[in-house]
């Protein structure tokens, strides 16, 4: 189903069909977007369901002013950030180090097939400030262009390029031997 068809169903009030169309067209893309932030398959799967619930609840309010993919990615990005903040708070309250919890969960995830360098890269990305992490994940892992990222994050392309540059510098400092 094309974006135009989905939007037409949504604006016509047929939310059920619009939602089904969205799920078929966008689930995989949204999953990988979320996975880029949380890394662990189980977390991404959980998040995807939360995002789909949020999309279902928000459908009646969607007016088609933004592109469909922009709207969906914004919902997914916000949900991913909320999840990361909750996880960080949970680790703080249990007096565990966020980094060590993440490292051990990544180690245990059967759906991670990266090498040591990639493990270090993911750990370094996790330490980035929120905005830089967002830009880095979308640019480096998802290969989005700055125009798309700009629409989703509602930030200028110039600011995004600066954020990406700073993110790369910080990651380079974290794993210097390999750069």
């Amino acid at each position: 189903m094309s974006d135009e068809e989905i939007m037409s169903l949504c604006l016509g009030g047929d939310y059920e069909s619009a939602f089904n169309g969205l799920v078929h067209s966008y689930s995989e893309r949204l999953y990988w977007h979320l996975r880029g932030f949380v890394s662990i398959h189980e977390d991404a799967d959980d998040l995807l369901q939360e995002v789909l619930i949020k999309i279902w609840n928000a459908l009646p309010r969607f007016r088609g002013e933004a592109h469909l993919y922009t709207w969906l990615y914004r919902i997914a990005t916000n949900e991913a950030l909320n999840s990361l903040r909750r996880q960080k708070l949970k680790n703080m309250l249990s007096l565990s180090s966020d980094d060590s919890v993440f490292a051990s969960r990544l180690e245990a995830d059967p759906y991670f097939n990266g090498d040591e360098l990639q493990r270090q890269l993911l750990a370094a990305v996790r330490k980035l400030p929120e905005k830089q992490r967002l830009v880095f994940v979308m640019r480096y892992f998802e290969d989005m262009d700055y125009r798309q990222i700009s629409e989703i994050l509602n930030t200028s392309e110039g600011a995004l390029k600066a954020s990406y540059h700073h993110a790369c510098m910080k990651i380079r400092n974290e794993i210097p031997l390999h750069f």
Partner: peptide, 26 residues
């Protein structure tokens, strides 16, 4: 997505969108 060092369980994406999956979400 070739920069992602990630995989998914077999049939994961095919399962999304099925009536059973949507029921789970509901």
């Amino acid at each position: 997505m070739n920069r992602f060092p990630f995989t998914v369980p077999e049939g994961y994406f095919e399962n999304i969108g099925t009536p059973e999956y949507l029921q789970k979400v509901r």
